[in-house]
Amino acid sequence: MPKKNIYLILLSLGTALWGISFSVTKLAVQESSLYIFLFYRFSLATVILCACFYKYFKETSSESLLGGVKLALPLTAGIMLQTLGLKYLPASQCTFIAGICVVMVPVLKWGVYKMSVSAKIWIASLVALAGLCIISVSDTFTINQGAIYTILGTFGFSMYLILVEKQATKGNIITTVVPMFAACTVLSLCFAVTEPAGSWVPANNNFWMAVIYCAVFTTAFMYTVSMMAQKYIPAERVAIIYLFEPVFGAIAAFFILNEDLSWRLFIGGGLILAATFVAELNIKNMGFRKGIRTNKIS
């Protein structure tokens, strides 16, 4: 089986794991410090990855170290902001808002790297924006601060996807995995120490179960697979594979957190899913995809 197809399967599996992680994380940070939670999550993931990729240490160069740090900045910001959003917003809503990265990636490529974007992507962006407004804006026309945090986190994650694609063209992406998560650990530690009231050893089983689940499945496994996959799959296609993450996330929130699936979630989430389908239907002919093959990001 071609490597591209193998990574497509692994990414699809990871999408389900990722969707479930929103509910698992919400249980962990409801009564505990999210920064301490992220510190443990990244620390354990780094240890696991060191054990898995130790043979690549001798291939790690200063460029790999620097590349890992550069990737860690938007990734840490994205995860941190989305986790913060979970404190104020239902997990089911967070998963759908996070889904707008599908249309955000190509739009950011257009804005940052001047790559052309087809009309369908702009239409998809408007449809996704409409869905986002239905989910995020209340009857009194106010926006929950959790929605703002999640949107900003999605922006950070979208930038991370684009930078991973850029880094993958420079050499062996595996050598940047451990430095990236080590940098994420340090960054989260810097925030964790600013919370003097936070408990470093919470007496909460949900906290430790979430640390293990997120470190193993959604951090060490999923982010490594997504990074390696982008050597064979463009960033916007990777984002589209994440299409069903909100679906798994909403189902998990219903069963794990007993969250109500409101009409806003169904209509707004449906529009966001429709927007991603619009992007997927046109992906083989989109101008920005063509640009990826002809224009190297510098």
Rank of each mutant, 00 (worst) to 15 (best):
R237I: 14
G153R: 07
K4H: 07
W122A: 06
M80V: 13
S33T: 11
S138T: 13
G291C: 12
Y40K: 09
G249C: 07
A45P: 07
F157W: 13
K170F: 08
L81Y: 03
I272A: 00
Q167L: 10
S43N: 10
E236Q: 15
V24P: 02
I151P: 00
G131N: 09
Y40G: 06
L73G: 01
M80L: 15
F155A: 15
Y242V: 09
Y54H: 14
C190R: 08
W200M: 09
A220R: 03
F37C: 09
P246D: 03
I251T: 06
G249S: 01
E195P: 05
C52I: 15
L11I: 12
V47D: 05
G146V: 10
G146H: 06
M159A: 08
I267M: 12
T25Q: 10
S32F: 12
A250F: 01
G131I: 08
N204Q: 11
L89A: 03
L34C: 03
G19N: 02
A182Q: 03
S118K: 04
I135V: 10
L66R: 13
F155P: 06
E280N: 06
C101I: 13
L66Q: 10
F96A: 08
A77E: 00
I283L: 14
E59F: 03
P196A: 05
M228E: 15
C190S: 15
K58Y: 04
G67C: 08
I233M: 10
N5M: 12
C94T: 14
K284G: 11
G171A: 11
I256N: 00
A275K: 05
P106E: 12
V24M: 04
C50D: 00
E195T: 10
F207R: 09
F266Q: 10
I97M: 10
A77C: 11
K120G: 06
I233P: 01
V102E: 01
M1A: 14
P246N: 01
A51G: 09
K4I: 14
Q82H: 02
G291D: 11
T150V: 15
E59P: 00
I20T: 06
L49S: 04
A168P: 08
L187I: 13
N285H: 15
N204R: 05
L257Q: 00
V164C: 12
Y54M: 12
S92L: 05
S23C: 08
S125C: 12
S64W: 00
S12Q: 03
